[in-house]
Nucleic acid binder design. Structure first.
Lengths: 343, 343
DNA sequence: CTGAAAGCGCTTACAG
DNA sequence: CTGAAAGCGCTTACAG
C-alpha cells in the first residue's frame, strides 16, 4: 500500500478560488442542487471541466457517512456459475451507482474471515456472500457486524437469520430432473455426488426422494452416494453405483461438475452416458451444452440471480426492510445425457 | 447511494477516551509503530477488541493521500478467459493488501468511458484495463489522467505509450499452431476468424504467415477469413473456406470460440473436425478440453496473467518505473481437433 | 513515549 | 442564492 503520486490533485477549493465563489457553492453544483444560480452553475461547471476535476467520492462518503460500494465474496471466479453471478451483481450495482468490491474465499472459511475483515475496512454499504463450505455463523458475526447489511447467497447457514438470503429452488430442481427420468421409464435412480451435510445437497436429495415417493418407487440407500463436487472425485466414485445386483439405470447428480465427472467414469467402464445410463446435472454451466453427450441439467440463470442479489441487498439498505428469504426458480433443460426412453 | 445505517460507529476517539490516551497513540498502535510503550499498546489493543473497532481505511487513505484499491476493467466476466484473469488479479492484489474494484465494458467504448469515470472517483491506486474493441486512446486519456497508473492488458492501443502493457505472444502462438499443422502434412492452411483491424488478430495472422513462409508454402488471400469472434458468426462463415477448387485442409482459428463455431459449421456440412479438416484455437478455455473432438489450442494461463498484471501495476506504482511492455508466453496444447497426420 | 493541533477533500447546517 | 465554520475518521509533524 504505497503512496499514490503525491502530485497535486484538483479539489473543490481550487475550483472555488479560481472563479471566486465558496467551496460550498461548488459542492452544491456537484450535487446538482437547485439552490445555485444558473450563471454561477455554468461558471463552476466550465471551471470543473477546464481543470479536469475528479470527484473524490471517498471524501464525500466520509463526510456524509454514506458508502457507494458493495462487497461481493464468492468461492472463486474460475467457477463459471460464480463468474456469471458476479457479472450480474456488478451490472446491477453499476446501474445504481455502486461499485463492486471483489473478494474470493477459495472455499476456505479462514480465508473468508480474512477477506471479509479486509473488505469491511472499506465500509461497504452491503455484503453479498456465498459462504465457503464449512462456514460458521458465529465466526461470521464476529467480522460482519449484526448491523451490517448482508445477503447470503446459495448456501444456507444456521444461526444467520438476521441476514438476508437468496437461494435456488434446489428441491424442486432435483424433483424435476427425477420426474423426467421416471417419465423416460427409469425405476432405479441414484442421487450422485455432493456432501450430504451441505444444505443444497440435502435439498436436492429431498427433491429426488419426493419424486420417487410420488411415483411409488423405492430408494435403496446404496443409491445415495456422496462425492466432493469436483470432476476427479466424481469420476473416481463411479464404481459405487454398480455394487448391487440390481444397479441404478440413471443418476440425478448434485451438479454439472459431478455429472461431467460421472460421465467420464461411465465411459471408462465402457458405458455410454445417455445410452447405457442416464445422467442429469444442476447449474447449466456453459460446458454442459458442448460435452458428449450434451448434459441434461437445471438452468439457474446465474447472471439474473446476480442482478437479483444486488437488488435485494440495495433494497435492504434503502428500506431497512427485514432481511428476506428469497428462493429463485430453476428450469429443466433436457439434452441427450438423459437419453431416450429406457429399453 | 443511500446513507448507511447512521448507527454509531466506533472510532479511534472512542478507544482513546475509553482508556485515557490520545487519538494519536491509538493510531500509532493501529499502524504498528514501535514508538508506543508495550503496556500502552496492550491496553489499546484490548480496548480495540472489546469495542469491536473496525479500521476505516477510507479515512486513512484520505488523510495519507494513499489508496488501497485497484480498478479492474474487462469486457465481461462471463468470458471464462477474463473470469480466470480477474481471479488472478484479485488473488495477487489481495496478497498485497489491495482490494479489487470491478468494472465491465461489454465491449462498448461508451460504457467503458462511463465505467472508468465512475471508478476513478474511488481514487484507485492503479487501473488494469482490457480495452473494449474500438477504444480510442484520446478518449481514454480524457478520463484516465496521464499521471494515472494504468496497465493495458491484451489489446494494444495506438497512442497509449505512456501506459504499461501486458500482452500475449500472439504471433508466436499462431506460428506454433501453424507449424504443428504443417508437421502433420497440411499445405493449405487458412487463418479463420477475428477482425483484421484488431492488434491481436494482426499478430496472430503474422504468426500464421511466418510459419507458412518458413515452410515455403504459399498463402492464398482467400484463406484469410474474417468473422466476429463469436460462435454463431464463426459457424455461419464456414462456407467461405470451401469456395475454391483447392480448398484448405486445416484452419488456424483466431480463438477458441471461433474454433468451436467453425467445428459446428463443419459438422453441418458433414465434415468431421479432426478427421476431414483440422482445426486449432487460441486461449484454451475450459470448454476446449471437453468438446467433440477436444480442441487443439494455445494455453495462455489467464490466471497467471492476472497475477502478473497485478504485480506489474503495483510495481509501476511503487518504483515509479517507466511503464513497461511485457509479452507473456503461450504454449501449444495438442488435442484431437488438429487430427492425425494427413492422408 | 504521549498529547494538542492541523489537515486530507468533501458536505451541511446556519447566517446573511 | 452564497459564504464561513465545523466536522466525517484518520494521520502526522511538532512539542514536551
Amino acid at each position: 500500500m504505497r503512496a499514490r503520486d503525491p502530485q497535486r490533485v484538483v479539489t473543490v477549493t481550487d475550483i472555488a478560488n479560481a472563479i471566486g465563489v465558496s467551496r460550498a457553492t461548488v459542492s452544491l453544483v456537484l450535487r446538482d442542487s437547485p439552490l445555485v444560480h444558473a450563471d454561477t452553475r455554468a461558471r463552476v461547471e466550465a471551471e470543473l471541466k477546464r481543470q479536469r476535476y475528479v470527484y473524490n467520492r471517498g471524501a464525500a462518503n466520509l463526510r456524509r457517512r454514506t458508502s457507494s460500494s458493495v462487497a461481493l465474496v464468492i468461492n472463486d471466479l474460475s467457477n463459471p456459475f460464480f463468474a456469471e453471478f458476479a457479472a450480474g451483481v456488478d451490472e446491477a450495482l453499476g446501474e445504481k451507482g455502486y461499485v463492486t468490491l471483489l473478494g474470493s474465499t477459495g472455499e476456505s472459511p479462514e480465508r473468508q474471515q480474512a477477506v471479509l475483515a479486509s473488505l469491511m475496512e472499506h465500509t461497504p454499504a452491503g455484503v453479498i456472500l456465498s459462504p465457503a463450505e464449512g462456514s460458521d455463523a458465529a465466526q461470521l458475526h464476529k467480522v460482519l457486524d449484526t448491523r451490517a447489511n448482508v445477503l447470503l447467497f446459495n448456501r444456507e447457514l444456521a444461526g444467520a437469520d438476521d441476514w438476508g438470503f437468496l437461494g435456488l429452488d434446489n428441491q424442486r430442481g432435483a424433483q424435476l430432473a427425477t420426474e423426467h427420468l421416471i417419465a423416460l421409464g427409469h425405476r432405479r435412480i441414484a442421487f450422485y455426488g455432493g456432501h450430504a451435510d451441505s444444505s443444497s445437497c440435502r435439498q436436492r436429495r429431498a427433491g429426488h426422494a419426493r419424486a420417487m415417493k410420488r411415483a411409488g418407487l423405492p430408494v435403496d440407500p446404496s443409491w445415495l452416494i456422496e462425492s466432493a463436487p469436483n470432476r476427479l472425485e466424481a469420476a473416481a466414485g463411479t464404481a459405487k453405483l454398480f455394487g448391487d445386483q440390481a444397479p441404478p439405470t440413471a443418476a440425478v447428480c448434485y451438479n454439472d461438475t459431478v455429472a461431467l465427472g460421472l460421465m467420464l467414469g461411465l465411459l471408462a467402464r465402457g458405458i455410454q452416458p445417455g445410452k447405457g445410463f442416464a445422467v442429469t446435472g444442476f447449474d447449466d454451466i456453459p460446458e454442459a451444452a458442448v460435452t458428449t453427450p450434451p448434459l441434461t441439467t437445471l438452468a439457474v440463470n446465474p447472471r439474473e440471480r446476480g442482478r437479483q442479489a444486488a437488488q435485494l441487498v440495495l433494497a435492504q439498505l434503502a428500506e431497512g426492510t427485514a432481511p428476506d428469504r428469497t428462493i429463485a426458480p430453476v428450469t429443466l433443460s433436457v439434452r441427450e445425457s438423459s437419453g431416450a426412453a429406457l429399453k
